[in-house]
């Protein structure tokens, strides 16, 4: 592996780890706050999958960095300006509709992105994708069912779901942006060319929203910046909470 590719792959694994840890953390905030006990369990399950992915991506990033850092250094010792997650993942959990719509957007994204990552020439990335694909299949079934039930449920649930779709839509464009690092890896057959996934994502999401009697928004706005560390105000607070114990006891084992 050339140095340039190695460095890009490390950056890429870090980004994917950041996406996973941030979304996993947000989902974990639902535990004991769900609408009924079965949902507490389901949220815990999904959060666990994402934290597991984060650990695999970070461990790989640490291996490539080869500078003595481990998965926790990646998660706990970088600040918000160094995090490279997509903005969609860091938005606060909001109400149940908001979290489920965000989940649907993410799940459809991973449904398309992971099979491509499975084809990666990088064996580790491919292996992580293989495990994640199985999880995402279940995640999507759940978020799709929920969006259908909320969209086509009561007047109130419909309104909440529509509001969530409208509020989140502008954060979905960034999911399909490519920069030099990702282009380099896509050309090398290592990373996924996410730009090519947007049409299929739109098609799948639109079909589900329409079945849920929800309106697919016009593309009138887009917020970007997660991949360059230009975040919303929410991430700083999230990381403050997440990192407090770890950073209060420097160098300790847990």
């Amino acid at each position: 592996m050339s140095d340039q590719i190695k460095q890009a792959t490390q950056e890429y694994a870090t980004r994917l780890g950041d996406d996973s840890v941030v979304l996993g953390h947000r989902i974990s905030e639902w535990v004991s706050y769900g609408p009924f006990l079965e949902e507490d369990i389901a949220y815990g399950n999904v959060a666990l999958d994402y934290i597991g992915r984060a650990r695999m991506f970070y461990t790989y990033a640490a291996e490539l960095a080869d500078d003595g850092r481990d998965e926790d250094d990646f998660a706990y010792m970088r600040n918000d300006r160094e995090y490279r997650n997509l903005l969609l993942m860091e938005l606060p959990k909001g109400d149940f509709a908001y979290s489920q719509v965000r989940q649907l957007f993410a799940d459809v994204y991973y449904t398309l992105m992971l099979p491509e990552l499975l084809q990666s020439k990088d064996e580790t990335l491919s292996a992580i994708a293989a495990k994640a694909i199985k999880e995402t299949k279940y995640h999507l079934r759940r978020s799709r069912d929920w969006v259908l039930r909320l969209g086509d449920g009561t007047e109130e649930s419909h309104q909440r779901a529509q509001k969530a779709v409208d509020q989140l839509w502008g954060y979905t464009h960034e999911l399909f942006d490519m920069d030099e690092t990702e282009q380099l890896l896509a050309d090398a057959g290592i990373g996924v060319d996410v730009a090519g996934l947007r049409d299929r994502w739109l098609e799948m999401v639109s079909a589900i929203l329409t079945e849920a009697t929800l309106t697919v928004p016009e593309d009138s706005w887009a917020v970007r910046g997660g991949r360059i560390g230009y975040h919303t105000e929410n991430l700083g607070h999230m990381l403050t909470e997440m990192q407090i114990v770890h950073r209060s006891h420097p160098g300790c084992k847990w």
Binding site: V21, D72, I244, W254
Partner: peptide, 11 residues
């Protein structure tokens, strides 16, 4: 849960 000091402990 949101303050667990390592990813392993969080999981």
């Amino acid at each position: 849960l949101t303050r667990a000091p390592s990813l392993r402990r969080k999981a």
